[in-house]
Amino acid sequence: MSVPARREARGMFPDLFDLFEMPLTALRPFTGQTGQVIRVEDAVEDDRYVVRAEMPGIDPEKDLEISVSRDVLTLHAERHESREGRRHSEFRYGSYERHIRLPDNIKEDEIKATYDKGIVTITMPFAEQKETTRRVPIES
């Protein structure tokens, strides 16, 4: 039996590799996540916070939304399936979403995003850090 035929024969049982890839998939409804998870990497580069996300096979102008609210960056994408002349596909389709907590000192009005070869790069400059510690007097 060929690999695609074996996969089709399993029917509704999940693929073992899918379970290892997303180990807490069954808990997602309880965590507030919707859709499939977007894989990301982040780093501080040249006084900027940079987030890169894997999003192959989408049209960034139609299928991608990036928003910031209350120090949380939200990435939401839709990947649509085309069934033209195809019997078997292992691609993932549907809704993808990721929420990323941002550092406090990000200049939200200067966030920029680019899409190249399936990777979304979001660059966020840091604002100057102001001294936020203040001594609180104690009354007796």
Rank of each mutant, 00 (worst) to 15 (best):
A9R: 10
G11V: 09
M12I: 07
D15Y: 09
L16Y: 13
E21M: 14
E21P: 11
P23H: 13
L24V: 06
A26V: 12
P29G: 03
G32C: 07
I38R: 01
V40M: 08
E41R: 08
D42I: 05
D46S: 09
R48I: 04
R48W: 00
R52I: 06
R52L: 06
A53Q: 04
M55V: 04
G57M: 02
I58N: 00
L64Q: 02
I66D: 00
S67G: 10
S69H: 12
R70K: 14
V72H: 01
L73I: 04
R79D: 02
H80N: 15
E81T: 07
E81N: 04
R83Y: 07
G85S: 09
R87P: 04
R87M: 08
H88T: 05
S89Y: 08
E90A: 11
Y93K: 11
L102R: 05
L102T: 01
L102I: 05
K107T: 09
D109E: 14
K112G: 02
A113D: 08
A113V: 01
G118A: 06
G118L: 05
I119N: 03
T121E: 10
T121R: 08
I122P: 00
I122L: 03
T123R: 01
M124W: 00
A127Q: 10
A127L: 13
E128C: 05
Q129L: 12
E131I: 07
R134E: 14
R135S: 13
V136L: 14
E139L: 12
S140L: 13
S140H: 14
